[in-house]
């Protein structure tokens, strides 16, 4: 496979291979927490933080512990445990420094643990055999991509409040349709660079 520079991967993860809109990972919190730009931005930052840290830590653990001992099959458990620990740490941090954000994020903060985008990124970097630097940039890029999309969606939804939407489409219905249209828009970038 041809070597891609970390910067290329970074931008590709944001635009052409957006984790949310091309792989549809991390949909649950995307649908529920995209009502206000402020909260969506907070959650987006939290996800970006967790993604960057966990892709680096998971990389180190995978290549220094799991692979040398030949127990790569444990990666699912080990990755998710590590993600859980990082989320706990982040939870304490937010509770200490922004109680308003802490209450607004509510249950979705601890639920970042089971945000499939996070486990997805860690597994993708192994499957695609990225180097350490590539992995970290991939993690950070995916996080920023997720942040970009959820903030964009929150912006749209804030305006939707003033629109007349057919009753059957209110709530999740219209959000899913909009995500589909956004996904088509992002596919337009895909000619620029491909990272699978």
């Amino acid at each position: 496979m041809e070597y891609l520079s970390p910067i290329t991967i970074f931008f590709a993860a944001i635009f052409t291979s957006n984790i949310l809109l091309t792989y549809f990972l991390g949909m649950c919190s995307f649908l529920s927490v995209s009502k206000q730009i402020k909260t969506a931005f907070g959650l987006g930052l939290a996800v970006t933080f967790v993604l960057t840290i966990t892709s680096a830590l998971n990389y180190i653990i995978y290549y220094t512990l799991l692979q040398p001992f030949g127990i790569e099959y444990l990666r699912y458990i080990v990755f998710i445990v590590l993600v859980a620990a990082v989320v706990q740490l982040l939870e304490m941090f937010i509770q200490r420094f922004s109680e308003v954000l802490y209450i607004n994020l509510g249950i979705f903060l601890p639920l970042i643990t089971v945000n499939c985008a996070i486990l997805g990124v860690s597994l993708f970097m192994i499957i695609r055999e990225y180097t350490f630097l590539q992995s970290v940039f991939f993690g950070a890029g995916s996080g920023l991509g997720w942040l970009l999309v959820i903030v964009a969606m929150a912006g749209i939804r804030e305006r939707l409040n003033e629109q007349k939407i057919p009753p059957a489409l209110r709530g999740a219905g219209i959000v899913l349709i909009i995500s589909g249209i956004m996904a088509m828009g992002f596919v337009g970038f895909s000619g620029i660079v491909q990272i699978q």
Binding site: I61, L65, L66, L74, I77, V78, V81, L82
Partner: peptide, 14 residues
């Protein structure tokens, strides 16, 4: 042992 080690370390850290 590896799993316990990793989990124990993380718990301690937390």
């Amino acid at each position: 042992a590896l799993l316990c080690g990793i989990n124990g370390l993380l718990a301690l850290f937390l």
